[in-house]
């Protein structure tokens, strides 16, 4: 199910990285978290999924990363079906969820090395990769500290570094910069945009920091009460909300949500 798009005058070949078709999810308490969600994200795209709290963003991320099961519909990651190829998918994806999934008893360096080794990287390469990430995320002074002893911001940095240690092809970032100071956030986005631009890594981001989505993402979808309300470019969304004047994504989003809620 890989689609090829040919655009004139320059031929652009766009390969689907994530295909989501009619995915539904209902929780045991009766809440319909996702209602017929269909999306297509292309290889190397920086995509952001926006929506209010409880709209279904994290549920979709959990399903796509195989942490949760969908009730119906289908999805493919890099052409792989999670029902049969979840272990292959795990090798391709890097995931940083909302909570810090860190072993508090492990040191920063050891956790990074262990994570790399779990993905089949040799001990020597794992140590090297851990060193690079420690430097990139400015954790040099903390590398021998136990993760449980780190400050909130540094835990977050380690959490994000762990998601990148195996050089993933697709990155799922669910509110990744919550708790980071502005400098750490800027540093984090520099790393992610570099991976996106130079290594063609596909990024699937959910965030409430809309200025980050505005600055780094090219495409977006808006989800509300489990339904996709908009799917397209960020520029297209801004234009749709206010054709006369260019709004920031923050303003366009607020205007759209307020109007939608009134309706």
């Amino acid at each position: 199910m890989r689609l090829l798009y040919f655009c004139h005058p320059i031929i652009l070949i766009m390969i689907s990285e994530i295909i989501i078709g009619n995915v539904c999810k209902k929780y045991p308490n009766g809440i319909e978290a996702l209602k017929d969600v269909s999306l297509e994200i292309f290889k190397g795209q920086f995509f952001t999924l926006l929506g209010p709290n409880g709209a279904g963003k994290s549920t979709l991320v959990r399903i796509l990363t195989t942490l949760a099961r969908k009730d119906s519909g289908h999805f493919l990651i890099a052409g792989l079906d999670p029902e049969t190829d979840y272990r292959k998918i795990q090798k391709l994806i890097g995931v940083a969820l909302q909570d810090n999934e860190i072993d508090p008893a492990g040191t920063v360096e050891n956790l990074l090395i262990f994570q790399a080794r779990l993905f089949g990287i040799s001990a020597k390469d794992a140590t090297q990769k851990a060193g690079v990430l420690i430097e990139l995320f400015e954790l040099g002074n903390e590398c021998r500290k136990k993760a449980g002893e780190l400050s909130g911001g540094n835990k977050r940095r380690l959490h994000c570094a762990l998601a990148l240690v195996h050089k993933p092809q697709v990155l799922f970032l669910d509110e990744p910069t919550v708790g980071m100071d502005p400098l750490a956030r800027a540093n984090f986005w520099e790393i992610i945009t570099q991976m996106n631009q130079t290594e063609n890594v596909t990024v699937f981001l959910t965030t409430q920091y809309l200025e980050e989505a505005d600055r780094y993402a090219s495409n977006m979808a808006l989800i509300n009460e489990g339904k996709i309300c908009y799917n397209g470019t960020i520029a297209g969304f801004k234009k749709m909300v206010n054709p006369d004047r260019t709004l920031s994504l923050d303003d366009a989003y607020l205007k759209y949500i307020k109007t939608n809620h009134r309706q």
Binding site: T65, T66, L67, R87, K88, Q90, K91, I93, V95, L97, D99, N100, E101, I102, D103, P104, A105, Q115, L118, F119, G120, L162
Partner: peptide, 18 residues
């Protein structure tokens, strides 16, 4: 149990380990 409590189990669950 410690992994379940700390959330680290989720990270292990997301690894390619069986």
């Amino acid at each position: 149990n410690a992994d379940m409590q700390s959330g680290y189990f989720k990270r292990l669950y997301l690894s390619p380990a069986p």
